[in-house]
């Protein structure tokens, strides 16, 4: 049993960071929030329980309400930053015009000026900002970030973390960050430690 009596509520506009050693189940926690792993109990996102959903329903719900930022961005290097972001909207069924307009606006707001260059040529920080933009384009209720600064140098780490933790207030969503990095975690409204299957909130976080 990986988790035992795990309980976490995250309202809109609030951020939480989960820390823990490797293998403690941080990524599994993200998988639970995405509905890819179905634990005993319930996982509720935007007032709907994921554990009882069928695959199709779950996929629709996930695309409508959840966004994810990965450690390595998981962007397509051949596509431009703009296309990478717009692609997520297109795949979720947004019209072409709206998808590109929203993507362009988001990238400007998030500070990716070279949005029309292939993503493979961007810096690590720019790539991760693009990843954040992509996660936000479908206006998710829950934004998940899996080691979002793990592959960045110090300067980029700070700027991406700053950007990320502004998101809940600015875009009206909840943010759950899984990280090793104490300095990143400290920016969250609440900080948890995942150890032995238990989630312990650090007081004064």
């Amino acid at each position: 049993m990986l988790f035992d009596g795990l309980d976490l509520r995250l309202p809109i506009g609030e951020s939480a960071a989960v820390m823990g050693p490797s293998g403690s189940g941080k990524s599994t926690l993200i998988s639970c929030a995405l509905g890819l792993v179905k634990p005993q109990g319930s996982v509720t996102v935007a007032d709907a329980d994921l554990t009882g959903m069928r695959r199709r329903q779950l996929a629709r719900h996930r695309s409508r309400y959840t966004g994810v930022v990965f450690q390595f961005g998981e962007l397509l290097p051949e596509l431009t930053a703009l296309e990478n972001v717009a692609l997520a909207a297109l795949l979720a069924g947004t019209s072409r015009k709206d998808a590109y307009a929203d993507a362009e606006r988001l990238l400007v707001e998030l500070g990716v000026p070279r949005a029309k260059r292939p993503t493979g040529t961007l810096s690590g920080g720019e790539r991760q900002r693009t990843a954040v933009a992509r996660a936000l384009i479908n206006k998710p209720a829950l934004l998940l970030a899996d080691e979002p600064t793990g592959a960045l140098d110090d300067t980029n780490r700070n700027s991406v973390a700053e950007l990320l933790f502004k998101v809940p207030k600015q875009w009206e969503c909840a943010l759950l960050v899984v990280t090793h990095d104490e300095q990143v975690a400290m920016r969250a409204d609440r900080v948890f430690h995942l150890a032995d299957g238990h989630l312990l909130e650090r007081s004064g976080g």
Partner: peptide, 15 residues
């Protein structure tokens, strides 16, 4: 494999 994460998150396999 590069589009896997995106397609899973967007629930779109037709891509």
């Amino acid at each position: 494999r590069q589009i896997t994460a995106l397609s899973v998150l967007s629930g779109n396999r037709t891509i």
